[in-house]
Design a protein around this nucleic acid. Structure first.
Length: 467
RNA sequence: GGUCCCAUCGUCUAGGGGCCUAGGACACCGCCCUCUCACGGCGGAGACACGGGUUCGAUUCCCGUUGGGACUACCA
């Protein structure tokens, strides 16, 4: 096979959401798998809704996800002369014609659908041979007979009766091309070999195929991916709380989690669930893409994220965690200290946001204590125990985890108290909570001095029943 | 409404005629580990939408039904 060229072509009318990231990933993966080229194209012909800030956001999101592009970003609005050239060819060959009918009214169209009618252009100007002029659009002269079909690389053979298609507008009255025409011209001129997009584009494909035919160009392969659905099984959208890729970053997800999750939605490689980027590039082919749509499941994404959090080396984890600490009021944390802190938290947290919150006590005084925790464990009865622990801790030669283990188990044996009744009051004094990383590792990281300070505060609280 | 797409545990999926007593993963439940919470380990519950064919034999192939979805613009 000659060079494989895929493209991702978002319209900058919103941020890059999960569905878009899914499509972008599949295109990127195919390009990388076949050592081809991944093209980025901005489809900004909708002047009304396109915004420059979304272009920036989309580029940032793709970059964050690690979906680097080899060509582009091309912008359709910068390619107007190219489309005009192709329009002229179609006009010249009689495959297109001018039309000055008023644009179809959106409301009227909806009404027609609910009435059970098919809203389609009546072909009024089809044979009128109108010249160019103001308020004049260019329409495609669709064959009324025959069948248009293709062998979809994911879905298999798909066919449409040409009679079902009407004469679509190729170029608006203002000279700007419409989607179905611009894609074809772009995919031709950019040498795209595999058009991989959501299955919501299936109905567009026969129209585009007819344009290829009129242009006498061999069409690329088409592959229509299964859509990503919300819990209600409808196409994922804002009302499902579908977030932009960047929002996932802000919620403490790692890009590798998202990439792994998105790759496994609609694609599989045997029973494997965890895929490195290299694995994905090595194994990803269209053959293993499923036909049926998949429901977005945040629990599984969360599981993947916790997996990658656990697996991440401490220094890197410290670096990733740093920006999230700011929200906790912790700025410019010592990276070496944070690199000791982070691994104690990584198995207990599913996102960086959670982890930053859980890291709080390592940097800040745990008071005020969590009310229930203090009430249950920092009781007057616990005060003597805490004092004894403080005393023994003060005279401990070193605060290694082994030494601490001996201290606590020794105390448990000599006093006959359960470990839990020894550990929990200390835990609350040190962290303000009943759940935390292991006591010995906390003490070891906090250091003897800080630990004693906090235990003493705990003793004060326990003695007088208040902070 | 019309056209098109889809159909295995709640979810993501493996399997594409006999290997299926249908496998894995998330979530769920139980047990173990244990200073708490997690991690981890072990175990459990849980699916081939329905009806016809084809075949010695269908989860797997064909048709239909049902269900779900997408599209139906001078949006992309």
């Amino acid at each position: 096979m000659s060079e494989v060229r895929t493209r991702f072509s978002p319209s900058p009318t919103g941020a890059l959401h999960l569905g878009g990231a899914h499509t972008a990933l599949f295109n990127w993966l195919i390009a990388r798998h076949y050592q081809g080229t991944f093209i980025l194209r901005i489809e900004d012909t909708d002047q009304e809704r396109s915004q420059e800030k979304f272009v920036t956001e989309i580029l940032d999101a793709l970059t964050w996800l690690g979906l680097n592009w080899d060509e582009g970003p091309y912008r359709q609005m910068e390619r107007l002369p190219i489309y005009q050239d192709y329009i002229n060819r179609l006009l010249a060959s009689g495959a297109a014609y001018y039309c000055n009918c008023p644009p179809q009214d959106a409301k009227a169209r909806q009404a027609a659908i609910t009435r059970g009618e098919k809203p389609r252009y009546d072909g009024h100007c089809r044979e009128l041979n109108l010249p160019a002029g103001p308020d004049t659009a260019v329409r495609f002269k669709t064959h009324h007979t025959g069948v248009t079909h293709w062998d979809d690389q994911i879905k298999g053979p798909i066919a449409f009766e040409n009679l079902e298609l009407d004469d679509l507008v190729l170029q608006r009255a203002d000279g700007i091309p419409t989607y179905n025409f611009a894609v074809v011209v772009d995919d031709i001129t950019m040498g795209v070999t595999h058009v991989i997009r959501g299955e919501d584009h299936i109905p567009n494909t026969p129209r585009q195929l007819l344009i290829y035919e009129a242009l006498k160009v061999t069409p690329p392969f088409f592959a229509h991916m299964p859509l990503m659905l919300g819990k209600d099984r409808a196409k994922l959208s804002k009302r499902h709380g579908a977030l932009s890729a960047m929002a996932y970053r802000d919620q403490g997800f790692l890009p590798q989690s998202l990439v792994n999750y998105l790759a496994r939605l609609g694609w599989s490689h045997g029973d494997q669930e965890i895929f490195s980027r290299e694995d994905l590039i090595k194994y990803f082919t269209l053959k293993q893409v499923t036909k049926s749509p998949g429901v977005y499941d945040e629990e599984k994404l969360l599981w993947l994220n916790s997996h990658y959090l656990k697996e991440m080396p401490a220094p890197e984890l410290a670096r990733e965690l740093t920006p999230f600490l700011a929200a906790q009021g912790i700025t410019g944390p010592d990276q070496a200290y944070l690199a000791r802190v982070a691994p104690t938290l990584s198995a207990r947290c599913k996102t960086l946001v959670e982890m930053a919150a859980a890291a709080r006590f390592y940097f800040l005084d745990p008071r005020p204590y969590e009310e229930k925790a203090a009430k249950k464990f920092l009781t007057p009865a616990a005060a003597p125990t805490l004092k004894e622990i403080a005393a023994r801790l003060a005279s401990l030669p070193d605060v290694s985890e082994e030494a601490l283990n001996r201290l606590f188990t020794g105390l448990a044996q000599s006093t006959g108290q359960k470990m839990a009744s020894l550990a929990q009051p200390v835990r609350v004094a040190l962290t303000g909570k009943t759940a935390s990383p292991g006591l010995y590792e906390i003490i070891h990281i906090l250091g003897r001095e800080e630990t004693l300070r906090r235990i003493n505060h705990g003793i004060e609280f326990a003695a007088r029943g208040a902070a």
